[in-house]
Design a binder for these strands. Structure first.
Length: 381
DNA sequence: TTGCCAATAT
DNA sequence: CATATTGGCA
């Protein structure tokens, strides 16, 4: 199933016609990805369970060049199994969850890449790279004879592609991040979101899209990764933009992965899956008290294939966020623990003073559990 | 304007 | 029913 260097050199307009195995249990997500892929002349074979997918690749080796596999909290072990089983196939893992543990596990198990959902055209367009890499690696290990010419030809293909894409790129992506001008800190490199450059632009971490102008003021639909449990670094809240919500725990105590990944199997398996008409993927976060893998992310679909993003601007007070909150309160001291200062100390983007205030209110007030946890977290008194 | 609280909404 | 948001008031 690996594409050889010879195949590549004989491949006329290379990325086109790439056969992509798409494994995603979410049929809507699958359909969306499929349509995007097909828009760039990839051939997509969709599977909604790994058994079918595995049998497909075993029955017909060579049918696929690359696989995109969705991993979620509920199917992680199966996804990992697929990943391990299909070693010959360059496999891209994708997920709407943004857990570093899961990511690392995927990579450790041989995934060529981990892409966070939603999968933009940019990300999807680049997947052919892994086919090339695979071909190089496969051919290179045996003999490097044919490698060079192929490399050259591929390089020339790339350059050709570059030119082409720049020309035909007018209506596609791009041209619309102009709309988001205002708003706070947008970092990243906005410039290079064009076409497949050798480097995959996947790891953007704070990208915010406000396509309809309905994001006002501090209502933010944003994404950010949260590093471990340090203080002083900025984090961001996920202001819920939609309705589906899931809790994840990638719990699959397996193999060597553990050497790289510190993971606990505390499966909080509360999976409420409600599918809505509005394709909107959503986040979750994982928490690890002892070791602290705490990421949170929210993903929302962007302007492209997705319409209405109903933003609910509901702050999810995750344990981590609460910890931040508590830390801030501690740091400031009881006397200084006023919403605005807490807000500052927390440095959580997208969080409003009101959010903090009401949370503060809840904390100090009536919620039994929170109050207890607050007290236990607190060192003074 | 900021903080706090009650009412209301999800 | 718990918890987050809204809105009003000090």
């Amino acid at each position: 199933m690996v594409c050889t260097t010879n195949d590549l050199s004989a491949w006329k307009d290379f990325p086109k016609g790439l056969r992509v195995l798409l494994l995603d249990e979410d049929s809507m997500s699958a359909a969306e990805i499929k349509s995007k892929l097909e828009a760039m002349d990839y051939i997509v074979y969709t599977f909604c369970n790994e058994t079918e997918a595995l049998s497909a690749i075993s029955n017909e080796p060579g049918s696929f060049h690359v696989a995109i596999v969705e991993v979620s909290m509920s199917n992680s072990s199966r996804s990992f199994k697929f990943l391990e089983t299909s070693k010959d196939l360059p496999t891209i893992m994708t997920s709407s969850i943004d857990c570093l543990n899961t990511m690392m596990k995927c990579i450790a198990l041989g995934a060529v890449e981990f892409l966070r959902k939603p999968l933009s055209e940019d990300k999807l367009r680049n997947i052919w790279q892994h086919v090339v890499h695979k071909a190089f690696n496969a051919g290179g290990s045996v003999q490097s004879k044919s490698l060079k010419p192929v490399k050259d030809s591929v390089v020339s293909m790339l350059e050709l592609k570059d030119g082409l894409e720049e020309n035909e790129n007018k209506n596609m992506e791009k041209t619309e991040n102009v709309s988001q001008a205002q708003e706070s800190n947008e970092q990243q490199s906005p410039a290079s979101d064009k076409y497949p450059a050798p480097s995959t632009p996947q790891l953007k971490q704070g990208e915010r899209l406000l396509d309809d102008g309905d994001c006002q003021d501090h209502i933010n639909c944003l994404i950010e990764k949260e590093s471990v449990e340090q203080e002083g670094d900025s984090k961001s809240v996920e202001t819920t933009c939609a309705m589906s919500e899931e809790t994840l725990q990638a719990g699959d105590p397996q193999s060597f992965t553990e050497t790289v990944i510190k993971e606990e199997d505390d499966s909080t398996d509360g999976v409420k899956s409600e599918n809505n008409m509005c394709p909107n993927s959503q986040n979750k976060d994982t928490l690890n008290h002892s070791n602290g893998c705490a990421e949170k992310a929210s993903s929302l679909h962007n302007s492209h294939g997705t319409r209405a993003n109903r933003k609910k601007m509901k702050v999810d007070w995750t344990p981590e966020l609460h910890r931040k909150f508590v830390q801030a309160v501690e740091k400031l001291g009881v006397d200084q623990a006023i919403p605005s200062r807490i807000l500052e100390v927390m440095k959580v983007e997208g969080l409003t003073r009101h959010n903090v205030a009401s949370h503060l209110q809840v904390r100090s007030g009536l919620t039994l559990t929170k109050f207890v946890s607050f007290c236990s977290d607190r060192s003074h008194f």
